[in-house]
């Protein structure tokens, strides 16, 4: 098993309902997360797709064997039951089935996404914590839970993709940065361009896309001020 391939994983410890652990692949096995992994009933991993193996395989970031994926993926949700062999030397092993849920990051964008690991980790932590696992305490993986997890995973995946697109924004200090403008996704750059072509600012109602505007404000690239009772946006 090649531990270098998968980059990010979340481990949900169902027995304690404790924190989610995000770690990268190289660490998953032998550091102090591994106890948690062995104790876990559901492991949520987000890993990089590995097409280099010729088969669509996700190499486990956790002590799990390679998962074989049965289709080409863009966003892939895999729920599988596997049996964790009891390990008499550790206090953690349960010997019960462990469920594995994966988000697979496609091979093609693997390298692009690497520099933004930190942001992805944050999203995984934030989103992953919202997952309600109480049902699994019985040991049953119900259809409903499977569906819930799948919906959650989709949303995490979308967040990752969006954050990936937005990463340059959060690294920038000003909108007056051509390199930045040239590399933004089109729905954002169209607003960003409008703003920099109006260096003194624009009334907020001239910009239709609230979501993008808020992202720009969060990224500290636009300031919102009130002029004559009207909300204006000023590029930084």
């Amino acid at each position: 098993m090649d531990l270098n391939i998968a980059e990010v994983c979340i481990v949900a410890n169902l027995q304690t309902m404790g924190p989610l652990y995000v770690t990268d692949a190289g660490k998953g096995f032998f550091d102090n997360n591994s106890g948690m992994l062995l104790a876990a009933r559901i492991i949520i991993t987000s890993g990089m797709g590995n097409q280099a193996s010729g088969m669509n395989k996700l190499h486990g970031p956790v002590p799990i064997p390679e998962l074989e994926l049965d289709q080409q993926y863009l966003c892939y949700f895999y729920i599988n039951e596997m049996t964790q062999k009891p390990n008499p030397d550790t206090p953690y092993s349960t010997g019960k089935g462990t469920y594995i849920v994966c988000i697979v990051i496609p091979e093609e964008i693997k390298n692009d996404i690497r520099p933004y690991e930190k942001q992805i980790e944050d999203i995984l932590n934030l989103e992953g914590k919202g997952i309600e696992f109480s049902e699994t305490m019985s040991g049953e993986l119900t259809t409903k839970l499977t569906e819930d997890i799948s919906v959650r995973m989709k949303s995490i995946f979308e967040h990752i993709m969006q954050s990936f697109d937005l990463a340059p924004l959060f690294e920038a200090t000003s909108l007056f940065n051509l390199g930045l403008i040239a590399n933004l996704p089109p729905h954002i750059s169209i607003i960003a361009k409008k703003l920099i072509l109006n260096p003194k600012g624009l009334p907020e109602r001239d910009l239709k896309d609230n979501k993008v505007v808020n992202t720009l404000i969060n990224a500290d690239l636009v300031t919102r001020v009130t002029k004559d009772g009207e909300s204006w946006l000023i590029p930084r």
Partner: peptide, 17 residues
Amino acid sequence: TKDWWQQSLKRSMIAEE
């Protein structure tokens, strides 16, 4: 710095207008 030049672009654009 790069930051300075970015602010300088903003100032120049205002001046141009």
